[in-house]
């Protein structure tokens, strides 16, 4: 199992107006999450299904003795899931005091995102998924869509759904 940890220097911001983001592809678009929230990136290992959990919860895995849930990003965004391959990864992130994993098809890069250029997402996305977005920003030729991890994990909703 290979585990890559963001190195020390990438977690520090270079200047006041930019922040490091981990960016990746889902479908055709590029998305990003703040690198500060990312603990590690690991290869995907099969998760144990949790009965009665919503379909986007792939299950639970063992993270060095702790049990964490893994959420499938594609399913969460209403996209058809892809079969896993060598590039499938789990991004382990922390929101509030809970750690969870987000399964992605791959991760591509760490980018400096100019925070002052972030624009609100136009309300074209469905209301259900609109809350997953923190805005979008043009960086060079790419458009990066910033994700809201707290909303994606949404522990309160999970509690209500499963209880």
């Amino acid at each position: 199992m290979t585990i890559t940890r963001p190195t020390q220097e990438t977690t520090t911001t270079t200047d006041a107006n930019t922040e490091k983001y981990l960016v990746f592809q889902i479908g055709n678009e590029t998305y990003g999450v703040p690198l500060l929230q990312v603990q590690e990136i690991r290869t995907y290992t099969p998760a144990t299904r949790v009965p009665n959990a919503p379909d986007y919860v792939l299950g639970v895995i063992n993270l060095r003795g702790n049990i964490i849930a893994v959420i499938d990003a594609r399913t969460r965004f209403g996209l058809p899931p892809l079969p896993e391959d060598e590039s499938t990864v789990v991004v382990v992130a922390q929101v509030s005091d809970k750690v969870f994993g987000l399964r992605l098809d791959s991760v591509s890069d760490v980018m400096d995102i100019p925070l002052d250029q972030v624009q609100p997402t136009p309300p074209i996305a469905s209301e259900a998924t609109h809350r997953f977005l923190n805005g979008m920003v043009q960086v060079g030729e790419r458009v990066v869509i910033l994700l809201n991890l707290r909303e994606i994990f949404d522990i309160d909703a999970l509690n209500q759904m499963v209880a």
Binding site: T48, P51, N52, N62, I67, F100, I155, A163
Partner: peptide, 19 residues
Amino acid sequence: NFIRVPGFAGATILGDGRV
């Protein structure tokens, strides 16, 4: 790190690392 799942008292890690 997750939620209380009704019907289950918790989880454990098996010998092969699975939960």
